[in-house]
């Protein structure tokens, strides 16, 4: 019996090959989609020759990195603070639960007014997307920390911050991963989607430009690049999570 990972790869290969055949035979026309092999060629070509590529890619990835860091760090700190204030948590709970039912993008005019058309707006949009997933996951993770750890901290005479950093953070880590994964995914989505509408640079803006100019090669090359980035970051987080689980729950 092969592993699930093997079957996942088989399904992916079949899907890509099918798409390749559909595009090559003209069943899917070239205006709608180019064959996956051409997407790879377009991506490599873009990386090697497009004069805008490195500037726009670093612009986007820097903004994503800042948005992810803000989501994770602030999400964890807010989670700790909210957890320490149970009454405030009860008041805030409906907001946290329904946060993702509100289309955060409706606030983009407001972001432009406050932060202008620049990286700050993009970062704030990305962080707004990611932070609540991190807050919710921090709250759940801290709820599940064995109470005896708190007693150990008090016996050791640790203050609130020492307890947060040396006990709560590591003890919560395995259960923070669902929040980390979502915070990363939402921050990437937030930054790139915001670039579609409020940016003067970046891969999201290049994607919009290429679409408007019917430049399928660039458009699909960029889509492929963003998909690869999402898959790699997700894969890294998952393998880190698996390593921690192995160490914690070996028996």
């Amino acid at each position: 019996m092969r592993s699930p990972a093997f079957w996942r790869i088989v399904i992916l290969v079949i899907a890509v090959l099918t798409l390749e055949i559909l595009c090559r035979t003209g069943i899917v026309d070239s205006y709608t989609m180019i064959p996956p092999s051409m997407m790879v060629v377009a991506l490599v070509d873009m990386i090697r020759h497009a004069d805008w590529f490195w500037a726009d890619a670093s612009y986007t990835f820097e903004n994503i990195a800042v948005a992810i860091t803000l989501s994770i760090v602030l999400g964890f700190v807010f989670g700790l603070v909210i957890h320490a204030l149970p009454r405030f948590r009860r008041v805030l709970n409906p907001v946290l639960l329904s946060y993702y039912s509100v289309p955060t993008f409706v606030f983009y005019p407001l972001l432009i007014v406050i932060f202008g058309i620049g990286p700050t707006s993009l970062i704030v949009m990305g962080a707004m997307f990611g932070i609540v997933a991190m807050i919710s996951s921090t709250l759940t993770a801290i709820d599940r920390i064995p109470r005896v750890y708190g007693k150990v901290a008090r016996v050791a005479g640790m203050n609130t911050w020492q307890t947060a950093l040396r006990i709560k953070l590591p003890a919560a880590t395995p259960r923070l991963f669902s929040g980390l994964t979502l915070a990363v995914a939402y921050s990437v989505t937030g930054v790139i989607a915001a670039e579609f509408i409020i940016a003067t640079a970046g891969l999201g803006r290049q994607l919009t430009l290429s679409y408007n100019e019917f430049d399928s090669a660039t458009m699909y090359g960029l889509i492929l690049l963003i998909l690869i980035f999402a898959a790699v970051s997700n894969g890294l987080l998952q393998s880190w999570e698996a390593r921690i689980y192995r160490r914690w729950y070996r028996s």
């Binding site: 005896v148 007693k151 150990v152 016996v155 050791a156 921690i244 160490r247 914690w248 729950y249």
Partner: peptide, 28 residues
């Protein structure tokens, strides 16, 4: 000067035995 041992497993799964034992001293 007061030490407490609890019924529940209070060893920290992210630390080795050595680091678990050293925990209180490092905090101090």
């Amino acid at each position: 000067g007061v030490g407490v041992v609890f019924q529940e497993d209070a060893s920290f799964p992210w630390l080795t035995v050595r680091d678990n034992v050293a925990f209180g001293l490092r905090s101090a």
